[in-house]
C-alpha cells in the first residue's frame, strides 16, 4: 500500500484535486440554487411544500441510475456529474433550510411582520440568523454527501478519487481500492470538521 503511494502519489494527488474540484463546483452551484429556491419559497407555502416533496422524490433515485439518466442529456464527464450532485443537494439543503426557517418562534415573526418588515427583510434580518444552525447542518450533510456521491461520478468519466477506486475494483488492486476510499473518507471528514469549526467561530 505504501508502495503504491510512493510510486503513484502524483496520480493520487491529481485524483484528489480533481475530486475536490467537482465537490467545490457542485457545492457552489448547489448553494446558489438553494438560495434562489429558498427565496422563491418565501412567497408561497404551497409552492415550498410541493418543491420539497418533488425534491425528495428525485433524491430517492439511486445515484448510478441518475447519472445514467443524465447521459443522453448532457453526455459523459464532469458537467453531468456536477449537475447530478447539485440536484441531489437541493433536497438536503432545502429541507434543512426551510425546516429551520419554519422553526423560528411565531411570536418573533409575527412581531416582525406587524412592525412592517417586508418578506425579504424578515427572511434576511430575522429568520436566517435565527435558523443559522439548521442552515449549517444542511450544508454539512450536503458536503459529506457530495464528496461520497462524487466518487460514483467516476462511472461516467468525471474522474476524481472514484476513478482510482473503480480501477482498483476492476483489476482487483487492493491498494487502489483502499487509497480511493481512504482519501474520499478523509476528504469528507475534513470538510465536515472545517464547516463545524467555521460554525463555532461565528456563533
Amino acid at each position: 500500500m505504501i508502495d503504491y503511494l510512493v510510486r503513484y502519489y502524483d496520480r493520487l494527488l491529481a485524483a484528489l484535486l480533481e475530486h475536490l474540484e467537482i465537490v467545490l463546483l457542485a457545492m457552489l452551484f448547489s448553494v446558489v440554487l438553494a438560495a434562489l429556491l429558498t427565496l422563491l419559497c418565501q412567497f408561497s407555502e404551497r409552492l415550498s411544500k410541493l418543491l420539497v416533496h418533488l425534491l425528495s422524490v428525485v433524491y430517492s433515485v439511486p445515484s448510478l441510475a441518475m447519472l445514467a439518466l443524465m447521459i443522453p442529456l448532457t453526455g459523459l464527464g464532469t458537467v453531468t456529474a456536477v449537475i447530478v450532485l447539485v440536484i441531489y443537494n437541493q433536497y438536503l439543503l432545502l429541507r434543512n433550510i426551510l425546516a429551520g426557517l419554519d422553526g423560528v418562534d411565531r411570536g418573533v415573526t409575527e412581531a416582525a411582520m406587524g412592525m412592517g418588515m417586508t418578506r425579504l427583510q424578515l427572511l434576511w434580518q430575522i429568520k436566517l440568523p435565527l435558523a443559522k444552525k439548521a442552515v449549517v447542518a444542511g450544508l454539512r450533510i450536503a458536503l459529506v454527501s457530495t464528496v461520497s456521491i462524487a466518487t460514483i461520478a467516476a462511472s461516467i468519466n468525471a474522474g476524481g478519487l472514484g476513478a482510482i477506486l473503480f480501477d482498483g475494483l476492476r483489476t482487483m488492486n487492493t491498494a487502489k481500492i483502499l487509497w480511493g476510499s481512504l482519501l474520499s473518507a478523509a476528504l469528507a471528514l475534513g470538510a465536515d470538521r472545517l464547516l463545524a469549526l467555521a460554525e463555532r467561530k461565528s456563533a
Binding site: R106, G107, V108, A111, M115
Partner: peptide, 20 residues
C-alpha cells in the same frame, strides 16, 4: 401594507423580541 404597519404600534402577548 408595509407603510400602514410601520405607522402602527403593535404589542403582543408573546412579546416577540428578536433574540439575536
Amino acid at each position: 401594507l408595509v407603510k400602514v404597519r410601520r405607522g402602527i404600534g403593535y404589542v403582543i402577548q408573546q412579546i416577540g423580541l428578536f433574540p439575536h
